[in-house]
């Protein structure tokens, strides 16, 4: 592990963006997430790592209430964004999701043109008053997702015609086009090759200037490369949460150490 790089990227931002207290998630009778307490900071990349089925994706989906779409899923505890409880009765999940964008494991562009993919969010949220503004938003989002140069000449071609890595960057562009405050990424690189992965990781690094990014990943190397904070989940418990450098070099918990050194997971 490259210690120098890790200390260099140590955290100096400490505004808490998302705060979770005592979160429990049940799928029917299965207790999937147990007592998770976590504070996610603003303008920081936070990685969730852990073996398959440990609940990291489930917890991620709690943060923008995507779990609402699963009938048997029940969430307890408090999750606040900027001090506001997202599970409050008055909260409309649709409004929440405009604030907390999400990128999924498998690239899932809409079967429409590249332009329409990016413009969809701004359109339904009324972010653009006219076509020119919308064009500007689309260009900005595509530039931010490092897709502009490749896509600018084919904005009207179907998004599904792009390569896997381009599709995933299109999905990121789509997510940032709605100007979210938090970006959730559920294993965004698991379907990509190393080169595309590298591009997406660079992108994540840039995105943290403006957003709080939470990324779920199976790859510990990726967590070490892109994140400032890392949370290790195991069997539904949050085992350890801290600065990435510390988790990877000097973990406190035995289980974290075993996972990181490859003995479990």
């Amino acid at each position: 592990m490259d210690d120098l790089r890790l200390t260099e990227r140590s955290v100096d931002q400490t505004d808490i963006k998302i705060s979770a207290r005592n979160v429990q998630v049940f799928y029917g009778d299965t207790h999937a997430i147990k007592d998770v307490d976590v504070d996610i900071e603003d303008k920081t990349v936070t990685a969730f790592i852990g073996p398959s089925g440990c609940g990291k994706s489930t917890f991620l989906r709690c943060l923008n209430r995507m779990n609402d779409t699963i009938d048997i899923c029940r969430v307890e505890g408090d999750i606040t964004i900027d001090g506001e409880d997202i599970y409050d009765r008055r909260v409309d999940p649709v409004q929440l999701r405009a604030k907390v964008g999400m990128v999924f494991q498998k690239p899932n562009p809409f079967p429409k043109s590249i332009y329409d993919n990016v413009a969809y969010g701004p359109k339904i949220h009324g972010l653009a008053k006219n076509k020119a503004e919308l064009d500007e938003i689309v260009e900005r989002a595509l530039r931010r997702a490092a897709l502009w140069n490749e896509a600018k000449d084919r904005l009207q071609t179907p998004g599904t015609g792009l390569s896997g890595g381009q599709q995933q960057r299109l999905c990121i562009a789509r997510a940032v086009a709605t100007e979210p405050e938090v970006l959730l990424m559920d294993e965004p690189c698991s379907a990509l090759d190393p080169i595309a992965t590298g591009q997406v990781e660079e992108l994540i690094d840039e995105l943290k200037q403006d957003y709080s990014v939470v990324i779920v990943t199976h790859s510990m190397q990726q967590a070490a490369r892109v994140s400032q904070k890392t949370a290790f989940f195991h069997l539904g418990n949050l085992v350890e949460y801290g600065e990435t450098g510390k988790i990877f070099t000097n973990p406190e918990d035995k289980r974290t150490e075993s996972y990181i050194s490859g003995r479990i997971g």
């Binding site: 995507m66 779409t69 999400m102 990128v103 899932n108 969809y120 969010g121 949220h125």
Partner: peptide, 26 residues
């Protein structure tokens, strides 16, 4: 595919928007 519904909900579309803009045309 459910991923289309997720994608629409993920950018903040309402249930009805996700159905009428994306699922129904497909």
């Amino acid at each position: 595919p459910p991923s289309i519904r997720d994608a629409a909900l993920g950018v903040g579309a309402s249930k009805m928007q996700s159905v009428f803009h994306h699922v129904l045309p497909l």
